[in-house]
Amino acid sequence: MKVGITVWGNRISPVFDSAQMLLVANIDKEEVVGRQIELFQPGAFSSIIDMLAELEIRVLICGALSRGPAALLDAAGVSVIPFMTGEVETVLSLYAKGLDLADFTMPGCPRNRCCGTNQCMTGHQRVRWCWL
């Protein structure tokens, strides 16, 4: 499966709305087996969503994300793990292994909260984020 992460150097880009670089990681059997970098126009959300669809990215890990683009990503069927921070490789390898990413949530943001269910699954088992 493919996962996209908006990046800033070796860290997750702090704000999705103004990010301009996407790392596309290919995950197979809990390992990252391929990486590619894609550049995009910050704020051009329609074209970003088109790009995610073209690259068959179903999961997006990013930093702070405002409501407008969040709704567009949701409607496009992209599962988003927003308000993440930290070094890309660390987060990516934990995600690939299906481990909890709660420690990488930005300060002041809810942690360990999932939509619709009482159980909180992590990693690629279930990545839909719920803002409570």
Binding site: W8, S13, P14, V15, D17, S18, A19, Q20, P42, G63, A64, T85, M106, P107, G108
Partner: peptide, 25 residues
Amino acid sequence: ITGTPRSEAIGRFCWEVFRSNMCEG
């Protein structure tokens, strides 16, 4: 303004708390 309690903000990188479109560039 940020919605982040002081206890969580102190010691963190400023971009993690401030989350501005200026942070990156």
